[in-house]
Design a protein around this nucleic acid. Structure first.
Lengths: 219, 219
DNA sequence: AGGTGTATGTCGCAT
DNA sequence: ATGCGACGTACACCT
């Protein structure tokens, strides 16, 4: 990784056009060739960047980075204040645990936490517009499609409504109803769910996790 | 901005749990206090991070970053290979051109580029579920709601369909139809648009821009 | 503070 | 490659 602190101005032309007036910034060039221009603030997102693969042409006082999509990043370097290069080797990568996928596993094991009498038919049940998180059967033998989100918004309700509409055309499944399950559901989403005849259930991830504390975690 | 290259392992506990085994990485601490852990590859996104505001507690061989939301980033530092600090001053910030907002302005000036005879009633016409990009009237005096996207996907069609449904309840406006406008529209979105009786128009941003070349650009 | 919509989103997975 | 959904999305804007 190459790190350069320099006074520079930057122009990007590609998916949009953007211009960065002269100031002191960090230029970061990673081993894969990607280039990022960082200011000294504003979270982790750089002001400007060009992902790999690209081509970096370095001439006196200017870097020009281009890629095959016709995007172009030009950095005019007025003054280099510090420069450093260090090889790092491959990164072993990140191990994650605990997002929507885990919530889905927990609820697949205990569908009765969603609604009494609910029984799992299949997880990730495929339809021609994408997989339904859980396909279940209720106490009366009717099909129930379950969409699981961490944060329940309007989008999730629409997504579920599309699945239900699709599944309900299958004579082996119909009638099909939907239940929208999330840790929290916005009032707007609840309103939309009502008008789409979709049920809403809020679940407590930590409590569910507590129930199945016997299962070993990732690490 | 403080830059440290170190062999370290990292644990994050917060919205999820994540673990990063020992390797050489770049630790970046910006003036606003945000911390990022970068590997030497993989676009601009850090492996792990903690945005400002936070609290960084630095002890021998370990950094603990916490925030008020109960998130916690712990960096175990085994070996520091390089360290550097440089003040940069405030950044003048980025000037952008060519995002959805600009496309909306261009089309508001020339609605006939969307459909012959189309006339603008209002930009950002408010409804109780959000603003419609353009509200227009067609050659026959019927109301047309226009949703503009750079990249047209299913979501945009759904969004427009919601607006049309809402607007069509207003006796002063009905009947209302929708036109989905984007630089490119996915086949799935076109199919969905058809089943929602929504029109689709693909526009060329550069061409539109050329038409109004008299208007001065941002820079 | 919370909800909604945008993003040069990025990233991963399936087609 | 492209489409599609998830993301510790971040971020601006508005209520």
């Amino acid at each position: 990784m190459r790190l350069v602190i320099a006074r520079c101005s930057v122009t990007y032309e590609g998916r949009l056009t953007a211009y960065l007036p002269s100031a002191i910034r960090l230029l970061m060039v990673k081993a894969d060739g990607c280039v990022a221009v960082h200011a000294d603030g504003g979270a982790y997102k750089p002001l400007n960047w060009m992902n790999a693969p690209n081509h970096l042409e370095e001439s006196d006082g200017s870097w020009v980075v281009t890629n095959t999509k016709g995007e172009r990043l030009e950095i005019e370097i007025e003054e280099v204040l510090h420069e450093f290069d260090h090889s790092m080797g491959l990164d072993p990568g990140l191990q994650k645990d605990g997002v929507e996928a885990h919530l889905q596993v927990l609820l697949a094991e205990r569908p009765e936490e969603i609604e009494a009498g609910l029984r799992l038919i299949r997880r990730e049940y495929p339809t021609d517009i994408g997989p339904v998180d859980l396909l279940c059967e209720d106490g009366e033998g009717n099909t129930v499609a379950v969409e699981i989100k961490r944060n329940g918004g309007i989008d999730g309700v629409e997504q579920l409504a599309r699945y239900v509409e699709r599944l309900d055309r299958d004579p082996r499944l119909q009638p099909v109803r939907g239940i929208f399950v999330a840790q929290s559901i916005t009032p707007q989403a609840k309103t939309l769910a009502e008008s789409r005849a979709v049920g809403c259930v809020e679940v407590d991830y930590d409590a569910l996790r507590g129930i199945e504390s016997s299962v070993p975690t990732l690490f």
